[in-house]
Every structure is written in structure tokens, then in C-alpha cells.
Design a protein around this nucleic acid. Structure first.
Lengths: 205, 205
DNA sequence: CCGAAACGGACGAAGCTCGTCCGATTCAGA
DNA sequence: TCTGAATCGGACGAGCTTCGTCCGTTTCGG
């Protein structure tokens, strides 16, 4: 009774190729990639892209979903670290790297969050919970300053985003680590300057 | 012998209006503003825009030039502060605010820096010198960690850029201050974690 | 070996942008 | 007030990019 029994092997492979090409394209050029560029990069025709995904947006959704899954895995792995601070800082590093490697990720996720699909909503919730856990655990040990929230953590991780992508900046392939390191030092307890203003809210990661 | 004796009063006013509208437009929507949008926002026709500036790019150049002048003034004012650390941190705050208020400023300046006009090159040099002075002075007092460069400072200031503009983030109108505060705490001497990787280079601000 | 599934890429339609052009309007000096 | 030169407005043309379709051709796999 399976109406769509199983796609042909080449169809499945092309689907994977398209997702990989999309990640690569977003990484280097941001969200402003045309469907044609993606398909060409995948070594396929644009027709194939639309046959596989129906819509350019559907393709982006699939990519974001994969990224969220990876981030969830990372967050859970960081929770198993014996040292709470190391767990948190490793996650921040990984999240920053994800943003560096997926230029405009924040925009994509935000755009997707506007009308989240059930799958995406579930991933978002899981990820937020994981980050909350990491933050709480680090604060409980007294190493994370008390006045930051998990949203601050997320936003800080985004800070690496521009470091790599702004023209005119040559920070080297690992240059973003410097900024994140500075941020992490700033996040350590007890903190020197009190954080002013309302705590930020964020729905996306 | 003045071939262009003096523009009519309305022409001058319209020129000012266009620059103001451009800053406003860049602030809220980034560089992807059309000439029509700018002119409409200024309450003018697009024809006027092109008569005043000849080119959209020339208009952007004029805007960037003004911004650089303001930043130079700010930097010099910060140098007169008795406390070196306060001078530096105030400048970082102001630079961050400039980036927040001029979405895509980094891209504009970088784009302009590709083929800088003499005026722009002069401003860039002056600004870099001012930032260097601020950094050196703060390091000399022992309050700024020794392993950061003035380029790190610039990049950190840019970090606030996304905080405000990413959809899905509601950090409040002053939310970026939290991130900069964290960064500044991270920049304080002596620093906890050594900065790895090569020092970044940047030509733009 | 053959029919169904999948592919490629030319193509149409739509949208957006820059910059021009010229008739209508406004300024400012006499 | 009057007048002509400067300025304005916005419709318009040309060009570019993009999405998504369509159909003849190729490939898979039972």
C-alpha cells in the first residue's frame, strides 16, 4: 500500500547531492544563491532540483533540518562532558563554527521559524532545551557569570558570523576562534561589568 | 570664475534630505535599498537623486564619508578621556552602535575600500591611527589584555551587528550593549584563555 | 529487454533595478 | 510682479536575475 514505494537509486543520490551542494553554497555565498547555481554545483539540471523538492524553500528547509539535528547531537555530546564549563564552551565554539560555515544560517532559521513546520518546531524546542541545560549546568558550578541567559550565549555565538565574511577582514580560516575566546573569557564568572538592559529573547538559533 | 556659483536653496536641501534618507534606509534594510526607495523616503523623485549624485554609488560614498568623519571625531574625543580603559570601551560602544544603526556598514566600507577615493583613503587612515592610539594607550595602562590587537577590537565591535538585525531575536533596542559588555569584560587584562591563531588583519572599519 | 522513472536545460513570465528624459514646476534676481 | 534658468517628478526603457515549467532524451531496474 506504499504509494511511493521507493525512489530510484539515482534519484536518492541526487537528492543527497542537492542538499550537500546547498550547504556548500550557503556556506560560501549566503542565502542569495539561485536554484540554478545550486543545481549546477551539484552537477545536475535545475529541473531535477524542482522535481526532488518542489520548491526552493523546501530544499532550504531540508538543509536547516539537517543542521538542527547535528547541533542537537553536538549539544547532547557536550552535556556528557565531565567539566560543565568545557561542555558549554565547546558547544559555543561548535555553534559559532556552524554559523561561520553556513553564512546566513541565522536568517534561514529565523525565516523558517516564522512558519515552522512541525519537524522544525520540534528540533527548535529540543535545541533550546539542550542549550538551557548546558547553561544551567555551567552556572550551577559557578564558572558562568550569573547574569547571562542562554539567549546571550546563542547571540554571542553568532558574533563569529561576520568575522569571516566581511570583506576587508582577513582573520585567517580560524580567526573567528579569537573572538569567541574573548567572548568566553567575558562570560566567565563573576564578570566585571554588570549587564544592563532587558534579557534578550530569541526563537531561532 | 566659479563655474558652479551656488546651487539653489532647494537643491541643497534636497541633497541633505537624500543623504539623511540613505542613512535611514541603510540602517533599517541594509545595502539592498533601491534608488527609488531612497528617493521616495526623502519625499523626492528618483530623478532628483540622480541629478544630485549622478550615481547611486556616489550617494553611498557620500554617506560613508560622513560616517567616517563622525567616527573619527568620536575616536579623538575618546582619546581625551583621562581613563584609558574608559576611552577605549566608549569607542567600542560607539562603533558598535554605528554598526547597529547602519546595517551593512561593514559591507559598504569594505566595498568602498576596494577602490577608495582619496577622501575615503584619508579618512580610513585617520580612523585606523586613532583606534591604534586608543588600543595602545589602554594596553599601556595594563587594563587591556596584551594579546589582542586593534583589529580584534574592530571585529569585536562588529559583533553587535547581527544582534539587532537577525529576525527572531528580540534583544530590545539596547540589547546589543549586553554583548559588547561581555566582550569588553573578555578584553580586560590579563585574559583567561590565550588567543590562538594568527592576528587578524582588516582594512575596513 | 522494455516501460516507467528520472534527467537536462532551454524557455516563459515575472520582478526588480538603474539611469534617462522631458513636460511641469519652482526659485530668485531684476 | 515678471521671467528665464534651474530644478523637480515620475513614467519609461533596457537590462539583468530569478523561479518554476515543459518535453524530448537518457537511464534505471525488474
Amino acid at each position: 500500500m506504499n504509494a511511493t514505494p521507493s525512489p530510484r537509486a539515482d534519484a536518492r543520490q541526487n537528492r543527497r547531492r542537492l542538499i550537500a551542494a546547498t550547504r556548500e553554497a550557503i556556506s560560501s555565498r549566503g542565502l542569495d544563491v539561485s536554484a540554478l547555481d545550486i543545481a549546477t554545483a551539484a552537477g545536475l539540471g535545475v529541473g531535477t532540483l524542482y522535481r526532488r523538492f518542489g520548491t526552493k524553500e523546501a530544499l532550504l528547509d531540508a538543509v536547516v533540518l539537517g543542521l538542527y539535528d547535528e547541533l542537537c547531537d553536538t549539544a547532547r555530546a557536550c552535556m556528557t562532558r565531565a567539566d560543565a564549563w568545557e561542555g558549554l564552551s565547546e558547544f559555543v565554539m561548535e555553534l559559532a563554527k556552524a554559523h561561520r560555515d553556513n553564512r546566513g544560517l541565522a536568517s534561514v532559521t529565523a525565516a523558517c521559524d516564522q512558519q515552522p513546520s512541525p519537524e522544525l518546531a520540534q528540533r527548535t524546542a529540543a535545541l533550546q532545551e539542550a542549550v538551557t541545560d548546558l547553561t544551567e549546568r555551567a552556572r550551577a558550578t559557578g564558572l558562568l557569570r550569573a547574569d547571562v541567559t542562554w539567549q546571550d550565549i546563542i547571540i554571542c555565538s553568532r558574533a563569529a558570523l561576520d568575522t569571516q565574511h566581511c570583506l576587508g577582514v582577513d582573520a585567517g580560516p580560524e580567526g573567528w576562534r579569537r573572538i569567541i575566546t574573548i567572548l568566553l573569557d567575558g562570560l566567565r564568572a563573576p564578570g566585571h561589568t554588570a549587564l544592563a538592559g532587558p534579557q534578550p529573547r530569541t526563537t531561532g538559533i
